[in-house]
Each structure stands twice: as C-alpha cells, then as structure tokens.
Design a protein around this nucleic acid. Sequence first.
DNA 1: CCTACCGATCGGTAGG
DNA 2: CCTACCGATCGGTAGG
Lengths: 208, 208
Amino acid sequence: MARGKAPTFELQRAAILAEAAHLFADKGFHNASMAELAQACGVSKPLLYHYYRDKEQILFDIADSYMDRLLEIVAGVEEEGLEPDAHFAALVMRFMEEYEHAQSQHMVLVQDVKFLKQDEAARVRDKQRRVVAAFAEAIVRVEPGVKRRKLDKPVAMILFGMINWTFTWLRADGPLGFRDMAPVVTTIFLNGVKALAHTNEKKTVAAH
Amino acid sequence: MARGKAPTFELQRAAILAEAAHLFADKGFHNASMAELAQACGVSKPLLYHYYRDKEQILFDIADSYMDRLLEIVAGVEEEGLEPDAHFAALVMRFMEEYEHAQSQHMVLVQDVKFLKQDEAARVRDKQRRVVAAFAEAIVRVEPGVKRRKLDKPVAMILFGMINWTFTWLRADGPLGFRDMAPVVTTIFLNGVKALAHTNEKKTVAAH
DNA sequence: CCTACCGATCGGTAGG
DNA sequence: CCTACCGATCGGTAGG
C-alpha cells in the first residue's frame, strides 16, 4: 500500500488550487503573493511548498486540470451521438454551464498561461488546440462549406471569442446568466455561418 | 508663449508610451520592470520619471489614449452617414484595421486595466462603455428587434468577443490578417442577429 | 509545521 | 534659475 501521503493530501491540494485560481484571477499571477495565498488558505507560507514545488507549478496545475475538464466535456457530448445542429448546440451549452462555475480558472488560463515555461505552456496549448479542433469539426458537420474555404479554424476561433469574452462582461448578479447566453450564441453563430457558407468570395458589404 | 517643455518632450513621451505598451503586453504589467522599459527606450531609469510620475501613470496613459483613438474611429464612421448595414460593416472594418496596428495597446487594455486605481480604471471603463453603446446603437439600427428583447448590449458584447478575441489567435505571419476577418465577422453577425430577432423566446435547439 | 531569515530585485529618488 | 539627465542607492518586499 502507498505510504507517505496522508488521505487529506489531495483534498488540501485541491483546496489550495481553488484558492489560488481565485487569487490569480483577481490580482494577476505576478501581483499575487504566496503569503496572500497562504493566508487565504489558512496555512503558513512554507506549507504551500509541501503541496507545490513553486508558484509556477500551481499556475500549471490550474490551467492543465481545467483543460482536462474541458476535454472531458467535449468527449461527453461526443458520446451522445447527436445530429450536427444539436451536437453543436450541446457543446456551446455545456461550455457555458462549465464557465459559470469556473470563471477564475478560465481567467487564469487566458491571462497567465504565458508566464509558464515553454514546455508547460506548450502542454496546455496542445490541449487547447484539441478543444478548438473538436469545435471546428462540429462546425464543419453543420456546414461543410467552411472547410472548403479553409475557414473552419477561424470561425471556430470566432465562436470561442463569443463565448470566452463573456468573462469580461457577464456579472453573476446581472439579469443574464451564462446559460442564457448559450442559445443566443448558438442562434447567431449557426445562422451566421450558414449565410457565410452561401456567400461568394466577394465581401458582402463594401465598407468604404 | 508657452515656456518650459522642450519641443521634443511630447515626442519622447510618445516613444516611451509605445515601448511600454509592447513591454507590458509581452510580459504583463507587474512582470515588466521600469529598468527593462528604460533599457528598451535607450534612456536611464530616472529619466522615465521625468516623463511619467510613476509606473501606473504609464499604464493609464496607454489605456486612456487608446480608448480616445477608438472613440475617434466611432465618431469618424458616424460622420459618414451610412445606411445601417454599411455603417455597421464600416465600424467592424475600421476597428479591425486599428487592431492590426494596436495589438499591444489592446492587450494592455484587456489584461492590465484592472491594476489601475479605482478612479483611473473608472475613467477608462467609462470610455469603453461609450464605445459599446455606439456599437449597440448601430446594431439596433440594423435590427430593432434586439432592443425590444433587451439584447442590444449583450449582442454588442458578443460582437466584441468575435473581434477582440482575435488578439489571442491571429498571427501577423499567418495566412489570414485582421482585415480579412472583418467581412467574415460582419456576415456571421448580421445574418445571425437578424435570425435571432425573428426567433421566438423559446430556445432554437433543445440541447439536452 | 512554524519563526526566522536569505539573495535578488522591485519601484522610486537621493545628491550633484 | 530652468530643463534635462546621470551613477548610485534608498526603503520595502518578492519568491523561496
């Protein structure tokens, strides 16, 4: 049997991780101190180094475990075997539901991953690429035209813009919630992409 | 006549501001040092304090002057007196053109404004609100239905997600440029919003 | 698992 | 008496 690690080790580690995600999201990685984190966790600063080698490893664990969660959601929707439109709508809804409960993790992912060393940043970004690829495939199933025009990845990034930007403006105490935005985003995106695919190469509107 | 400030003062100040925008965007506000900034500008560190009271004032000037620029663009498009669809398309195109040349400023705006003191952050955020309001009005002119359903600000934020998220994935050396994305975004958004406005309150797709 | 510390580097300013 | 500007170092605090 495994010796050493106390049964509470993983629980304590997870508690530190959640607290760190809140702190880093709120103050930024470099502006948040290990002393603050220790105080927020109710432990001494040296004890943090019992659970994590250094500050950067906490950052990596936040981003990496969050990407694993998003990949799980992608796989879970895949298993449902839905029709293209419903499959896409389910992806958007599940992501918005996840976002509602992972605002801190997502903000850390977006704004602090660049502070990781190259190999750790690359591991996170590889998982991000797999999520983008899954959405791009789901979009192509709805509208194969975007693939022909090599717009599958760009339109997938446009979709991520629509849903990920919510972190900058959706307030928990506002009239609209994350779940409310899912059908709005799905309607705009699916109708918009279908129109895009049936447009010729010329720009639709001459801006100037 | 004005005494004091040398004619080169404003030029030197602008040069520092541009260099700081690049440095803060690249390394993050708290991870970038005044010593690095001085080196990048080819001046001594104390000289920076001749142009700016402190590090935070540099950050404020980057964000505030950039918001002034965006408000100028909004006003310039307004003056053209275009029809609703063309007016909206022009706003998107002008913003993407500006983004292409202001990537650093925009990244600083998004990720570092939260480090400003409350009153300075509020001044920047007020200008951001004015830009959002202008886009929301332009959208309502195209499709008044979104106003009736109180979705004008949310759909404006969805649009900003589409265009602002480009900073996380569009590469200067990639096959697609900022200008290429403008008609794609315009087509998806206008067709999507028109479809949304003609949809009833029920969700369009039952996700699960 | 705490108190007590370190090497280094931070933002900002002294004298000249 | 102003501005522009340097080498050296300040008090405090970061991660460890």
